[in-house]
Design a protein around this nucleic acid. Structure first.
Lengths: 334, 334
DNA sequence: CTGAAAGCGCTAACAC
DNA sequence: GTGTTAGCGCTTTCAG
C-alpha cells in the first residue's frame, strides 16, 4: 500500500538518491528528471516518512511550543499566530502545555522535546535559572514571547512604557487617586511582566505628582480583579480611577464596581491591559498589545535562525496602543 | 555528547536489544537487569531518539489534533482538555490549524499528518464526504468532537435536548415570543451543531405552543449577535426573550439591547449556549457544556482504541446543564 | 530471559 | 547531474 522512495525511483528510472533530491527541490537535479520523479511520486501517492528523514538528516521539521496555559485568551492567540507562520513554512507544531508544578518539574527534567524538534518557542513562561539552562542546553534555537531570560532572545512589548501611557491618560483626565490592580507579591517564579507594570505605575504616580499609590492583588483572574476592586473601595481613600494590569482583572473590577452600585466612568474610570477580544463588549478602555503578532514574529525569528544560523537580536519589541472606550472619563466633580 | 542505546548497553553489560526492552518496561526482562539498565541510562543522560524508534516500530507516540480555530475560547479549551490527557499518557500533541479555505484544501490534499501520528483528533470541523474519506483513509484511529461524520466516532453533547431545555426555561418564565439567534443559512459545510439547535428551537416553539418563531442570523460572532438582536427588535413583533445558540452571540445581543436602551431581564430575557468563562461576568444565563471534558474524553477514547484496537462507540454524549444567571426573568407585565 | 542479525526509509558523502 | 555506499538509532524476529 504505502510506497517507498525506492518504488518511486524504480518507476522514474532513477536512483533513490535522485528521488530524494528531486522531491526536496534541491538545485542539483535536472529539471526533466525532477518532473519525471514528481510524476512518478504522484502516481504512486508517495509520502515520505518523516521519521526516516529525521533519522537520516537530523532535522525534524518540527517546532516545539511550550506554554503555561492553553485555554487563556492571550496564550491561545499567541499560539495561533505562531502556528500559522510555522505551518506556512512547512513546519509542524508540537504543543507542550507545562501544566501544574508537577508537570513543570517533569517537563524540565525529561525535556520531552529533546530530539523531537528543531527549535523551541517558549510562551510567557517565567523561567528559573536552571530551567533556562535546561532549555539553552538543548542546543537548539529558542525564542521566547513576553519573557526575558539570560541567553534566550525574546519578543514582547514595552510593558513599562505601555503602563505609563495608561496612567498618563488617567492623569490627563484629571485623576489623581489612581489605584493599581495586578500581581503584588514577589511571585516565586518572578513573572517579569507583572513587575514591570507595577513599577511603571509606581514611577508614574510619582512622576506625574499624583496621589499615594493604592495597590491590590488581582492574581490576573477575573474573580481576583473583583475582589481587589472591592478591597480598594473599602480603603481609606477611594480611587477615582483604576488601572488593571490585565483585561481579565479589569473585567472583574467592572463587575465589582457594578455590584457596589458605582457607575463607570462617572464614578470610577477603569483601564485594562491586553486588548482582549471582549473589551469592546464591556466597553473597556485598554492598552492593546499585538498578541497574535508576537507569536508570529517569534516564529519568524525562529525560522530565520534555523535558516541562516544567526540568532535574532536579544529583544524585539512590538508596539502597543491605547484603545479608548467608554470606561474612562474625567474625574468626578465632587 | 548525546549517547546511544549501544553506549547504555555497553555500560550495563547487556545487549542493545535488552536495553531497548528494559527501558520500555517490557515484562520479559529480569528486574535486576532492568534496574541496571536504568541506572546506566540515567548515568549517561540517555534519551531515546523518537525518529529512530518510530522508524523501527512504526509508532510515533504522537496524536494529531486538527482544528478550525485556535484562538476561540471553545476550541482552545477543548484542546487543553485533550492535550492534558495525551501528555499524561506520554503522547505528544501535534497541532494542526486548518486555517482558511486554501489551507483546508491543502490540508486534505497533502494530509501532512500522514506517517507523523498514531491517531487523529478532529475538533468540531464540519467535514465533507471526501474529507471524511481522506481521514478515514489514513487508516488510523480518528475521533471527533462535536461533529458527526460517517465512520468517525464522536464525542459531543445533545444539542437538541440542551436547546430544548433552554426554551422550556423561558416558556416556564411565561415567555411566548422567544426569538432565536444562530446560524440560519444552510452552511455549505453543514455544521450540524447549529442546525440541531435551530431545529430544537423550532420544534420546542411548536411543542410548547409558543408564538411564531423569530429567527436571525448571528454567524456565531459577538458582532453578528448584536446585529441579529437589532434586527429582531425592529421586527413586527418584539420578542420578550432571546435564545442565542452561542454565548458569543448572546454577548452581542446583550450589547445590542443595552444600546437600544432595553433592560435585561426586565424588558428582554437572554439565554446563551456554551458556558463561556465570561458568562459570569456579564451575568448571562446559559446552557453550559463540558468543554475541556469533551477534549479529554475524546483523547481517552483515542488512547483506548490505540491500546486495544477496538474502536469506541460511534457516539459519546456528555451532559449539559442550565446555568441560571441574571439575564433571565419572568415575562414583562405589559 | 537475553543476544545476534536484519532491517525500518531516508539522506549524505563520495565518486563518476 | 546522478549513482553508490553507508549509515542514522532504534525495534524486532528468531535463536538459544
Amino acid at each position: 500500500m504505502s510506497s517507498s522512495l525506492d518504488d518511486v525511483a524504480q518507476l522514474a528510472g532513477v536512483s533513490p538518491a535522485t528521488v530524494s533530491r528531486a522531491l526536496r527541490g534541491l538545485p542539483s537535479v535536472a529539471v526533466t528528471t525532477r518532473d519525471r520523479v514528481r510524476a512518478a511520486a504522484a502516481e504512486l501517492g508517495y509520502v515520505s516518512s518523516p521519521s526516516a528523514s529525521s533519522l537520516a538528516s537530523g532535522r525534524t521539521a518540527t517546532v516545539g511550543v511550550v506554554v503555561p496555559y492553553l485555554d487563556r485568551w492571550y496564550f491561545s492567540t499567541v499560539i495561533a499566530g505562531a502556528e500559522k507562520v510555522l505551518r506556512e513554512a512547512g513546519m509542524a507544531t508540537l504543543l507542550y502545555n507545562i501544566g501544574d508544578t508537577a508537570g513543570r518539574t517533569r517537563f524540565f527534567a525529561e525535556l520531552p522535546l529533546r530530539k523531537r524538534v528543531d527549535a523551541v518557542l517558549v510562551l510567557s513562561l517565567p523561567l528559573t535559572e536552571p530551567e533556562t539552562q535546561a532549555l539553552t542546553g538543548l542546543d537548539l534555537p529558542v525564542v521566547s514571547v513576553g519573557q526575558v531570560a539570560e541567553g534566550i532572545p525574546m519578543v514582547g512589548i514595552d510593558d513599562y512604557a505601555a503602563t505609563r501611557s495608561a496612567i498618563r491618560l488617567l492623569a490627563q483626565l484629571g485623576h489623581r487617586d489612581i489605584a493599581f490592580i495586578g500581581q503584588l507579591d514577589p511571585v516565586p517564579l518572578g513573572f517579569p511582566t507583572p513587575r514591570a507594570r507595577l513599577r511603571a505605575y509606581q514611577d508614574a504616580m510619582a512622576e506625574f505628582e499624583l496621589g499615594e499609590p493604592m495597590e491590590a492583588d488581582g492574581h490576573f483572574t477575573v474573580s481576583g480583579g473583583e475582589t481587589a476592586m472591592t478591597t480598594l473601595l473599602t480603603g481609606a481613600k477611594r480611587p477615582t480611577a483604576v488601572f488593571a494590569a490585565s483585561d481579565e482583572m479589569a473585567f472583574g473590577a467592572l463587575r465589582g464596581l457594578r455590584k457596589t452600585g458605582l457607575r463607570v466612568p462617572e464614578d470610577v474610570s477603569v483601564v485594562g491591559f491586553d486588548g482582549h477580544e471582549l473589551t469592546g463588549l464591556v466597553d473597556l478602555t485598554t492598552v492593546a498589545q499585538p498578541v497574535a503578532d508576537q507569536g508570529a514574529t517569534a516564529a519568524r525569528l525562529l525560522l530565520d535562525w534555523l535558516g541562516d544560523g544567526t540568532p535574532p537580536p536579544s529583544k524585539t519589541l512590538l508596539k502597543t496602543r491605547l484603545v479608548l472606550n467608554g470606561s474612562t472619563g474625567p474625574v468626578p466633580a465632587a
